[in-house]
Design a protein around this nucleic acid. Structure first.
Lengths: 196, 196
DNA sequence: TTACGACATTGAACACTGTTCAGAGGGTGT
DNA sequence: ACACCCTCTGAACAGTGTTCAATGTCGTAA
């Protein structure tokens, strides 16, 4: 039952966008009463949070392969590009996980919020390894991680919120990837490190 | 009257966050009936759009000084940092202008959407000048502008949506600025251009 | 077979939301 | 006195998230 609710919620989100999905519509789709949903989920936010977690699981499973790359610079590039690809492939999940305001405030305090910390730690250790190799110098790891994550996130967010409408729409995904790679090529050169 | 509505709407947004402001609350605050608001604004979105425009005006007035910087690399850095500062200083406006889904879909098609294009063009010509000086090579201007804008936007967006809670909260603005400057220092070196 | 408790389900309501519209009220000009 | 315009609003409609007493449907024990 729980999973049936989540399934139809997810498909409705994908169809009708986000704020246009009501408890009643989910209830209609699974042919139950709206009140039934509250037997399995405390809140509407609880539904969002469940999908939120599901999204993090698929993001992790996508990035698992990339985490095996030994060269930290290549790994970092792969992680950033994998992050952007995830955002473009699963816009509903991405919205939920990183752009929506609703489900988080409570989560930040109550639940331990494992996923975010785990992903962030992975990013930070990768950056640490890059710094050990002489890359990304002169910055704290905290600022570097925020900057790199923010770069990938921002490009994705502009596309998903349709703020880049001054660029041709059908080329947007390609431009987004090119833009990210351009940042990477300046920050994480694959060629031998230029003389510092 | 129009301006009284906008004023109380804006102050309520700043107090109670965004989705917690209803037409009725605005009406209560100005001591009029909810129906009165519809004499001056077609929609709730129309109110958001008006504030949206106001936000762009203040962003432009802030960036006006930066546009006078002659060195394109310095100008670009100032523009990006000014953009981030605006987001941190006026989170409600920024949310409305770049992160909210609501008011835009109609605007993109009906209204000519001058502000966005104007700001984007300014960014692009600055990047063009940078490329003429040998910076930001090997990228289309479209991708470069999307990447740089996205970087600044993403850092701001992560802070405003409280996604960077694994970093100490009181240092977040400083870390955001440091992260952005770190990106800039790799992309737009102020020192003479390293040998290509 | 009957009685009981545990469980799943729901209709109806509450307080809220954005929005519309017929009508009330006041002011001015004829 | 009448007509006109303008500003404003009460009341309603359809929708939202959420709650709760009440209903039905089981399996088990007497």
């Amino acid at each position: 039952m729980r999973s049936r609710i989540l399934e139809s919620a997810k498909s409705l989100f994908a169809e009708d966008g986000f704020q246009n999905v009501s408890i009643r519509k989910i209830a209609d789709k699974i042919e139950y009463s709206p009140a039934t949903i509250y037997l399995y989920f405390k809140d509407k936010d609880a539904i969002l949070f469940a999908l939120h977690n599901e999204g993090f699981r698929t993001l992790f499973s996508r990035q698992g392969e990339n985490m095996r790359i030994v060269d930290p610079a290549k790994r970092l590039r792969a992680l950033l590009e994998g992050y952007l690809d995830f955002a473009l492939d699963e816009p509903e999940y991405y919205d939920l996980m990183f752009m929506l305001f609703t489900p988080l405030p409570k989560i930040l305090k109550t639940s331990e919020w494992r996923y975010g910390r785990r992903a962030f730690r992975a990013l930070q250790t990768t950056i640490q390894e890059c710094q050990n190799k002489g890359l990304l110098k002169n910055t704290s790891i905290e600022a570097a991680s925020l900057g790199l994550w923010g770069a990938a996130h921002g490009i994705a967010a502009l596309l998903l919120r349709q703020r880049a409408s001054m660029l041709p729409e059908d080329e947007l995904p390609a431009l987004a990837r090119e833009g990210l790679r351009m940042l990477e090529s300046h920050l994480l050169p694959l060629a031998p490190i230029p003389s510092a």
